[in-house]
Simulated scan of single mutants.
Amino acid sequence: MHDVAWDDVADWFEPDGSLLDAYVLDANETDWQRVIDLVKSQGWRFDYTVEGQSQPLPQQAADIFALRRSEATVTMHIWPAPNMLVNTHFFSDDEIEFDFDRTELQGQHQLDLLCRFMRSLGHQLGKPVRLTPENGPEHPLLIYSPTEDRFTPTA
Rank of each mutant, 00 (worst) to 15 (best):
E104I: 06
M76F: 00
L142C: 06
K40F: 01
L142F: 05
L38I: 01
T147Q: 15
G126I: 07
E148I: 02
H89R: 06
D47T: 10
Y48I: 04
G17S: 12
H109P: 03
P80I: 04
R130K: 14
D11H: 15
T30P: 01
Q55S: 03
M84D: 00
T103D: 15
Q33A: 09
F65Q: 05
T152G: 05
E51I: 04
R68W: 05
A81F: 03
G136M: 12
L85E: 08
T147K: 08
D47L: 09
H77F: 12
D11K: 12
K40N: 04
S145F: 12
D93Q: 13
N135I: 12
R68V: 14
W12N: 03
R34D: 13
G52D: 07
L20R: 13
N83M: 09
E71C: 06
G107V: 07
D94R: 11
E138P: 02
D112R: 11
E51G: 02
L114V: 13
Q124K: 14
S54K: 07
F13I: 12
V129N: 08
T73E: 07
F65G: 06
D63Q: 10
N135W: 11
R119I: 01
A27L: 03
T152A: 10
L141C: 05
V39H: 03
F98I: 05
L67E: 04
G17P: 14
D21L: 08
S18K: 11
F91K: 03
R119Q: 12
P15N: 15
Q33G: 15
C115P: 01
Y48P: 00
D149K: 09
D37Q: 08
L25M: 13
I36E: 03
G107M: 06
Y144F: 15
L142S: 06
A62T: 13
M76I: 08
L105C: 10
W12V: 09
F117D: 05
Q42R: 15
I36F: 15
D47K: 12
W44C: 00
V35K: 01
P133S: 13
C115N: 05
A10T: 14
Q106L: 06
F98D: 05
Q60F: 02
L67C: 00
S18P: 00
T103A: 13
L38H: 01
V129W: 08
P80C: 03
L105M: 10
F151H: 08
T30Y: 07
R119H: 04
G17L: 12
E51K: 07
D94Y: 07
I96C: 05
A72Y: 06
A66P: 00
L131K: 09
F91S: 12
A27S: 15
N135Q: 14
R116A: 15
L20E: 11
F151Y: 13
V86H: 01
D63E: 12
D112Y: 00
F65T: 10
E95L: 10
L105R: 02
S18L: 15
N135G: 08
N83H: 09
Q124Y: 01
H89L: 09
L111K: 02
E138W: 13
E95A: 07
Q59N: 06
D101I: 10
P80T: 02
H123C: 08
